[in-house]
């Protein structure tokens, strides 16, 4: 069964297009990374999927229905982000106590254990948590709902290094024990690469690619060597990124294809996060170009 089905999904905020024709499908139970630069439309997409905001045009189906104002979608999906709010009158313990009424598959044991592990104060109010603790609590809440579609929007914002790695581990373990569709948008692609199965890269409101991690790893290759040799080799290829290393040597990233091996040019794999960065950069150069 298809979990998410977007066809030419568009959304405008005051004439500015946040989503400009998104088409993708999410099948099976996988962990998908939603990757994109700031302002690419990640948050807008997730909010539409969660039914918080209305779609502009096009089609969006979550569990075969339009998520806006849909009880079935709301009951089986959750979006965890830093804007999650809970009543000021309820303590964290109260919130966890009420959640099972809403979410039929709520895992009380998991919630309590994680709560204890991260040493949160059950009498604390949600609005008074520090940024990191709030993110931790939201994450616990999101995981414990066991929703068939669980979405995290920048879940690790504000968490410290140790909590971040704990979070990734908890997510992976819980996913293996209870497979479901999980979508994570994050800036820290490198550190969560190991748990992603698919990557959905969007840029300026459009899907750049939706591929498995393995495919993305093979997406590009870097050539490094003397400038003239590298340029010759890269001629006619799709160049994603170039960087002048020094006066003689050049570093060029091209889309991967069959290539002769030449002495003086080394080929190197390109990390997934670099691929995503290069593919979504507008110019061929990097920040260095600004200072030329």
């Amino acid at each position: 069964m298809t979990v998410i089905d977007c066809q030419d999904l568009r959304k405008k905020y005051k004439r500015m297009a946040a989503l400009d024709g998104i088409t993708f499908q999410l099948k099976d139970q996988k962990i998908t990374g939603l990757i994109g630069r700031n302002g690419a439309g990640k948050t807008t997409l997730l909010k539409i999927l969660a039914g918080f905001i209305r779609k502009g045009s096009g089609d969006v189906l979550v569990f075969s229905s339009n998520p806006f104002n849909n009880l079935r979608v709301s009951g089986n999906s959750i979006l965890v982000d830093d804007q999650m709010s809970f009543p000021d009158s309820l303590t964290l313990a109260d919130i966890l106590g009420m959640a099972p009424d809403f979410y039929k598959r709520w895992d009380t044991e998991l919630a309590n254990n994680l709560f204890k592990y991260f040493k949160l104060n059950p009498k604390q109010l949600h609005s008074r948590l520090s940024k990191g603790n709030k993110a931790t609590f939201n994450m616990i809440f999101g995981l414990a709902t066991r929703c068939e579609l669980t979405m995290f929007d920048e879940p690790t914002n504000g968490m410290d290094e140790a909590v971040r790695s704990d979070f990734y581990r908890a997510l992976l373990k819980d996913y293996i024990a209870h497979p479901r569709s999980i979508m994570i948008s994050s800036h820290h692609l490198a550190e969560m690469e190991h748990l992603l199965e698919d990557i959905l890269l969007i840029h300026k409101g459009k899907v750049v690619f939706h591929q498995s991690l393995e495919e993305v790893k093979e997406y590009a290759v870097a050539l490094q060597g003397t400038t003239d040799l590298v340029e010759k080799l890269a001629a006619g290829k799709e160049i994603l990124h170039t960087k002048q290393l020094d006066s003689q040597r050049n570093y060029v990233v091209i889309k991967k294809e069959e290539m002769p091996v030449i002495d003086g040019v080394t080929t190197q794999p390109v990390s997934v996060s670099d691929v995503c960065m290069y593919v979504t950069s507008d110019g061929k150069g990097g920040i260095d170009d600004v200072f030329k």
Partner: peptide, 11 residues
């Protein structure tokens, strides 16, 4: 009320 920890029990 924002500054007092207005607990449910007190209410």
């Amino acid at each position: 009320t924002k500054h007092i920890n207005w607990t449910k029990r007190l209410s």
